[in-house]
Design a protein around this nucleic acid. Structure first.
Length: 579
RNA sequence: GCGCCUGUGGCUCAGCUGGAUAGAGCAGUGGACUUCGAAUCCAAAGGUCGUAGGUUCGAAUCCUACCAGGCGCACCA
């Protein structure tokens, strides 16, 4: 059992007691269906057992059963009170028990962790950029989701392997190459002062502009792709140079955001690897042959369509290469789970991919999951790289940093000799705002991003959480200068008990986020924890109280701080001591 | 045409494995800094949960139809 599983054992004890009571009161025999809930208001209790399911068999109303059970239940370790409230049997946790269980363990790095993924390997693919343009806010959502899910999975005990499948070949890559070759005048990142991905992106836009005036460019790009496939040296060399520029540019942004990968896959190296898989399936009679020799599979029986897997000329398609890379990834890692963080425009593609693998006899296809997310739109509509209507990720981070810096300087928290600390802090605050904003919404939803209004440092934001964390840090620092007593026998108030209960829910919350493959509930949880703490902070003096009270209240604060820190790190946000 | 996703106060979103009065934040209104950090706190105001049916003791939550928006439905990637 996991150390920080607080509610699990309580529920089990309640179930055992209730089963006995239902037997003696109504002569009922189990097994019963126990429906536990969280009361809407902590003043009503911390844990509720709904008594509706017992009513039919007991031939009496749920409120009467709740009453009777409240009377009949013996004392349970950890519970202070059982009280019938309408049709519910509500339980109050003992603050003393909570404090003993939580105040020390909350400070540990593994607080709230689960062992459910122990011994299992989870492959997480995310980012998957194209090497023809810089990263924009949409990629940002992918990267932030990917990192948060990786961190979340690690709390559940999985061995997490992060991979990035770089799309570095194809006609779109050739377009920026062609524009560069034709109009670029040997410009380099050094000579232009542009980040490598920005430089290449400039020529992608340039191609789009020119090709509208001169349709011949399209043929030239197609020819370049053929030359690339034929491995014409000049084309390959240009391709390698430009890809290296882009990848160096991406790396800067990844480093800045804290994105890491254990392995990179390049489509240029894997794009042909699916063909043998399809041919093997043909030999096994799992695919059909079209009139022109193309190989297809019919998925209409499950509501999908017929899908071509290999062209008539024998060349690979997108699905073909994905079949190949997926099989390769399994051979490389023998994963127990494989999550693909990819936008919802590819929902259909992944359904097909997974189904084909299943029909080809790969039993591990059941371990594949597409983690889909909605795209980010602007008030004007979709972002389009070709047309330059995108929120560039680097630019956005720069802007947020500048705004944060202005705020920090106006507060005079840092001295004049701490300029570099101000800069670093501004970076973290700016990122905190961006990351929290993007992660707090469920992934399935598309989100509208209004540059002027979306990002704020007030209210339910990353900086609010960072501020709460910093505020407690400040408290802890000042506590070194005062006498602290012992918290033994301290009478925890209702407000304090509520905070303790909230800390106690962290373990189940992480499990829930993982099971939903969604970091958004963690965002909500952290905000509510910080909000309750801020109110508490306002209501109750800590260092101005008696020494014993100081100790208890400070320890509670430190536990809150530790959970905030842990949660923020899962989200990729830096907890700050000063800001 | 078919499939998937989304539709909750002016705006951005929680809540959606059915349950106890539908929650936040922003914007706007009114308060709280001689007090441990006011990037904070408090108060009032603001919603027929897209529409119409249905299932249920009970529906924002499940089912059906419809409406609106998004994304797919290539021998493109």
């Amino acid at each position: 059992m996991d150390r920080d599983d607080l509610f699990g054992p309580l529920r089990e004890a309640i179930e055992a007691g209730a089963a006995q009571a239902l037997g003696s009161l109504y002569g009922l025999e189990g097994p019963f269906h126990y429906k536990f809930e969280t009361p809407p208001d902590p003043a009503m209790g911390h844990l509720a057992l709904a008594c509706f399911p017992f009513a039919k068999a007991a031939k009496t109303g749920p409120p009467i059963i709740a009453q009777a059970l409240a009377q009949a239940l013996g004392s349970i370790n950890g519970l202070a009170e059982a009280r019938a409230v309408g049709p519910y049997l509500n339980f109050f946790l003992s603050p003393r028990y909570l404090a003993d269980r939580l105040l020390t363990s909350a400070l540990m790095p593994d607080f709230g962790n689960s062992s459910q993924g122990k011994g299992q390997r989870l492959l997480l693919e995310y980012s998957s950029p194209n090497t023809n343009k810089p990263l924009h806010l949409g990629h940002g959502r992918n990267n932030l989701l990917g990192m948060a899910l990786a961190n979340l999975s690690e709390t559940q005990g999985f061995e997490v392997i992060k991979v990035n499948l770089v799309n570095d070949r194809g006609i779109h890559i050739c377009k920026s190459m062609l524009a560069y070759q034709t109009f670029g005048q040997s410009e380099t990142p050094e000579s232009s002062g542009l980040k490598g991905d920005k430089l290449v992106g400039k020529y992608y836009v340039e191609y789009d502009k020119r090709s509208k005036l001169d349709p011949r460019l399209e043929d030239q790009a197609a020819q370049m792709l053929r030359d690339w496939e034929a491995e014409v040296p000049e084309v390959r060399s240009l391709w390698r140079t430009m890809n290296d520029w882009v990848l160096a540019g991406f790396q800067e942004t990844y480093d800045r955001l804290g994105c890491q990968f254990d392995q990179l896959y390049f489509e240029s190296e894997t794009y042909q690897s699916g063909r043998e898989i399809v041919l093997k399936a043909q030999a096994e009679g799992r695919v059909e042959v079209e009139d022109n020799g193309a190989l297809s599979i019919d998925l209409t029986d499950i509501g999908l369509d017929k899908k071509i897997l290999l062209r008539g000329d024998g060349t690979s398609m997108y699905i073909t290469q994905d079949l190949g890379t997926t099989v390769k990834k399994y051979a490389d890692f023998y994963f127990d789970h494989h999550f693909f963080v990819v936008g919802n425009e590819q929902d259909y593609h992944f359904k097909v991919l997974f189904e084909v693998l299943k029909r080809f006899g790969y039993d591990w296809a059941a371990r594949l999951e597409h983690l889909s997310y909605g795209m980010i739109t602007l008030p004007e509509g979709k972002m389009k790289s070709r047309e330059g209507t995108v929120v560039d990720l680097d630019d956005l981070l720069d802007e947020m940093k500048a705004l944060a810096q202005t705020e920090i300087e106006s507060r005079e928290i840092f001295g004049p000799k701490e300029q570099d600390l101000i800069g670093a802090t501004a970076e973290w605050v700016g990122q905190g705002a961006v990351k929290y904003f993007i992660l707090k919404s469920g992934a399935a939803r598309e989100m509208q991003f209004n540059p002027k209004e979306s990002l704020s440092f007030d209210g339910q934001t990353g900086p609010y959480l960072q501020y709460t964390h910093a505020r407690i840090s400040s408290l802890a620092k000042r506590a070194q200068e005062v006498e602290l007593g012992s918290k033994e026998g301290y009478a925890w108030s209702g407000q304090e008990t509520e905070l303790l209960v909230q800390l106690g829910r962290f373990y189940e919350l992480l499990q829930f986020c993982f099971s939903e493959r969604n970091p958004a509930p963690l965002c909500t949880y952290l905000y509510e924890l910080a909000r309750n703490y801020n109110k508490y902070y306002y209501d109750q003096p800590v260092l101005k109280a008696e020494p014993n009270e100081r100790r208890a209240r400070l320890d509670l604060g430190l536990a809150v701080q530790a959970v905030l820190a842990k949660g923020l790190k899962i989200l990729g946000i830096e907890p700050l001591k000063r800001m």
